Computed example of a mutant assay.
Amino acid sequence: MRLRPEEPADTGAVRRVLAGAFARPDVTTPPEIGLVDELRGSAEWLPSLAMVAEYGGEVVGYALLTRVRVRSDRDDVAALALGPVAVAPHRQRIGLGSAVVQAALDAAVELGERLVVVLGDPAFYRRFGFGRADRLGLTSPWSGLGEPWQARVLPSVDGGAEPPTPGEVIFPPPWAKV
């Protein structure tokens, strides 16, 4: 397995991974594909935080971190949103999803990022240090979902971790379509 940032030549392979991972009989094209396509052309896109997992030379895993803002009464603070995370169906359950998520989080720490939010399965994301976002005072359109709305404070490069400023997490417009 090889983990690395997404390259422009990976676009088709990433779309195939997303299509396979999020396939549903009632949807021709999963909205996660459109989300990634729209984010790629936006100011919220951080190329070094779009990670792929290769297995046998084939792109089979994907984890994306993009810019969001935490708006409080005092100011806006930069943060990241994790998602979508996907693994090709024929390569699931062998640790690729965990590996690509950890690679993205590690890259975020190296860049000095401080906070990541995610909407997803608490049992999966707990292993990476995520917990309920409402306990950190973070709200979003998904706050009402309870446990799936999660956040993780990232350690600084020197190892310290400060709690985030409580506030509303503002997602870029493409997220409204998911």
Rank of each mutant, 00 (worst) to 15 (best):
W175I: 06
G57Y: 04
P84C: 07
A13R: 10
E58R: 14
A104Y: 02
P148Q: 12
A43P: 01
A88R: 03
V17M: 08
T139W: 06
V100D: 02
P174S: 10
G112K: 11
V117M: 10
V17H: 07
G34D: 13
P141A: 12
L65Q: 01
R126Q: 15
V14D: 05
L136E: 10
A63G: 02
R69N: 04
K177Q: 15
L136F: 09
R91N: 08
V153D: 02
Y55V: 03
V100G: 03
P5Y: 06
P89C: 07
S48Q: 13
L39F: 01
S98E: 11
E147I: 04
D76Y: 09
V60L: 06
W45H: 15
F130N: 07
A79D: 04
G159H: 07
P166Q: 11
P173V: 05
L18R: 05
V36K: 02
Y125E: 09
E168K: 02
G95Q: 04
L138K: 08
W45D: 05
E162K: 09
L105K: 04
G167Y: 02
D158R: 14
R4V: 05
E58C: 05
G144A: 12
V118K: 08
D106P: 01
V109P: 03
L64M: 15
P31T: 06
I33L: 08
G83F: 00
P166M: 05
S98R: 15
R24Q: 14
V27T: 14
V17T: 08
G20L: 04
G137Q: 07
A79P: 01
A9L: 11
S42M: 11
G95N: 05
E38P: 02
A133M: 10
F124M: 05
L65I: 06
L18C: 08
P172T: 09
A50M: 03
P25C: 10
L111G: 07
E58I: 08
P148W: 02
A79F: 02
A123W: 03
V117C: 12
E113Q: 14
D76Q: 13
G129N: 09
V27E: 13
S98F: 03
R114V: 03
D26L: 07
G160C: 13
F22M: 14
M51D: 00
A88H: 12
G160V: 09
L80I: 00
L82W: 02
A86W: 00
G120D: 12
F128H: 12
R127E: 06
A78E: 13
P89T: 07
G159Q: 07
R91A: 15
A123Y: 06
S42Q: 07
R40I: 01
E110F: 00
A123E: 15
L64I: 02
I33Y: 01
